[in-house]
Amino acid sequence: MAGIPQYMQGRGVFLRALLADPRHYQIIVLSSLILLGTFHFAFQLPWWHVVACVGSTLGTQAFADRLIGRKFDARSPLISALSLTLLLRTGSVTLSIAAGVLAIGSKYILRWRGKHIFNPANFGLVILSLLFTGAWISPGQWGTAPIFALFLLGMGGIVTGKAKRWDVSLTLLVSYAALLFGRAIWLGDPLTIPVHQLQSGALLIFAFFMISDPKTTPDARLGRVLYAMIVAALGFSIQFAFYNAAGIILALIITAPLVPLIDRFFPSGRYQWPKFSLSPNGVSNETVQIPAE
């Protein structure tokens, strides 16, 4: 890097480090969505709810890490908090906090063979909305306007390789779309109906930022594709046979216990968040695959 001033090198290193971990991209996208939603699309989302939720997930994670003697890392709980904030509606800060505690708590308590079973944000979201009338999932709060932006950001992650589990996101969206179009054709409905149904902010956030969590999806690609198809089919059934608009979100929590089973049939190395270190020589960045037990 001769000729490049030291500070410029430093900057490049920082940027590469920033984008080396897929979680950083997620954090940036989700935070932008919250800002966009709050200031431009007038979501009813008071800022103190965001703060409370972020605080409770970080706090729970810090506490639990200390308990088991692991190094605290703020990134995962931050993503959980941002997803929760985007999908959970509540008028009560207490419930926002409770959602964060539940989400992160589930990671440490509900485990199987060294992997947590439930997607933390999904767990917090569903349990809270089932237990309390004061909390609910609001699939319709996104108009069609931000959908395109959301789709672009999600696809952007895939194209730039920031989303390590793009196979899950795409399989889910494609299977869900196939089911919606199939239903419309069977009913003789105009195709504007499935197109409208796909323009759901909650669905896209779910596909790109929730189900794609590498920690709670099957280890092998084949297993992941299978898993995404199961989630899509179950979500579709819940939505249209049981008339619950949050079908796909419920489907994830119901099918989560299947993941260890799928891992058994399709064993593969386990995903680890990339480890990299900043050194004068630049970034060392590698994704470590640990062999399955």
Binding site: P139, G140, Q141, G143, T144, H196, Q197
Partner: peptide, 8 residues
């Protein structure tokens, strides 16, 4: 609120 349209 409506679930398949945005309620403003």
């Amino acid at each position: 609120e409506t679930t398949n349209y945005r309620t403003q």
